[in-house]
Simulated assay, not measured.
Amino acid sequence: MRTHDRYRRRLQALLGPADVRLDGDRDWDMQVHHPGFYPRVLAQGSLGLGEAYMDGWWDARSLDGLLFRLLDAHVDEQVHSLADAFDAIRAWLTNQQDRRHSFEIGERHYDLGNDLYRAMLGRRMVYSCGYWRRAEDLDAAQEAKLDLICRKLGLKPGMRVLDIGCGWGEALRFAAERYGVSGVGITVSKEQAALARELCAGLPVEIRLQDYRELDERFDHVFSVGMFEHVGVKNYRAYFEVVKRSLRGDGLFLLHSIGSNVSRHRTDPWIGRYIFPNSMLPSAAQIARAVEGLFVIEDWHGFGTDYDLTLQAWRANVEAAWDELPARYDERFRRMWRYYLAGSMASFRARRIQLWQVVLSPRGVPGGYLAPR
């Protein structure tokens, strides 16, 4: 028996519990184009699977359908590599999200190009989960999410708010236009900051290129949408201490973050290398430990299944736009981006990761907090 046949049999055995067949005829079956695929995946696990897809070594008609089945059957937990071990050791020994590394995520992901994100994100450049409770399309879901944040914070005209990790400034823009507030937004992305200043021109909104640890002023309320995933467990306590010193005594903080079902100290090797360097999804336990003694948890709202819908809409947008985008987004980049979006859909669909909005108060809301939905 040839070596690659032996590897193929081993891989097929691993895929069995997920009901995935090599070279099968169903949408979620894997079509293999290169014999080196089998030993590569068996040796490198998640990293090898993603890189092999980027290299065109395999395909599936329904990429998110395939990845969902693998995650739902926990096939990913059966294969580990030296890269996994190295990443675990590095995460344990070092603080990969300290001040020296804080701008790396901006440079490597959010600075890829505003043209890509304009094409993908819809009318509002909001790179986080929409709220689909009553929405029928992406733009409505994103506006509903922004309005939900404003209502949960009880924003009123004249208030001054802070957005930690403001992206392209859309949340502040929405809050200023609809609720009459002023505010400050900080980001570690030069491209985001430049466009955010354009989008917020004429509004009482200041956009800064700044690390959150440099904040030292007070606001009526604070929110952070899709940024906490880059803070890192070694910095969670310091992050919430910064938030507390940024709040007036009766202010609220809203944290909007993807979350993990279990406590981890690193991210998936492929995601860390190609999409979100130095990222880390918090668990509920890690958040609770970090806020203990600093805040009262007023509300914890989960709507992670809405992220699957959001990602599907992003994929449809970017697939329709590829031919109009610059040549630097070449075929390998496109396959990388497709794999990223499909893997994210699969993770939320399998309920392996969640989306939370957590409302915190420094001393507890007198009489209790009534959470809008």
Results as ranks from 00 to 15, higher is better:
P372C: 02
Y212T: 04
S46Q: 13
R197H: 01
G106F: 01
V222A: 06
A144N: 09
R100G: 05
D29Y: 11
H74Y: 07
V181C: 06
W314I: 10
D25I: 08
N278H: 15
G185D: 04
G16W: 13
K190C: 00
A18S: 14
C150D: 07
E77V: 01
G36W: 00
G185V: 02
A52L: 10
F219D: 15
A201Q: 14
C166H: 04
S347Y: 15
L247Y: 12
L195D: 01
D72P: 03
G130P: 09
N95R: 00
A91W: 00
Q96D: 14
A141Q: 14
R108T: 11
N235I: 07
R197W: 01
F228C: 04
E107N: 06
L341Y: 00
A346S: 11
P35H: 07
L155E: 11
E292K: 11
L247E: 11
T187R: 03
G48F: 07
E319Q: 13
G65S: 12
R264E: 14
H34Q: 12
D211M: 02
P269E: 14
L67P: 10
S361L: 09
M345H: 10
F333L: 04
M280S: 05
L215V: 14
Q192D: 02
L255G: 13
T305A: 08
A316F: 01
I287F: 08
S260D: 15
S189Y: 01
H74K: 13
L370T: 14
L11K: 09
R349M: 06
L355C: 11
F333W: 13
D115I: 02
V205F: 01
W337F: 15
A327N: 01
A327Y: 00
H34A: 13
G65T: 12
I105M: 06
T267D: 07
R349A: 09
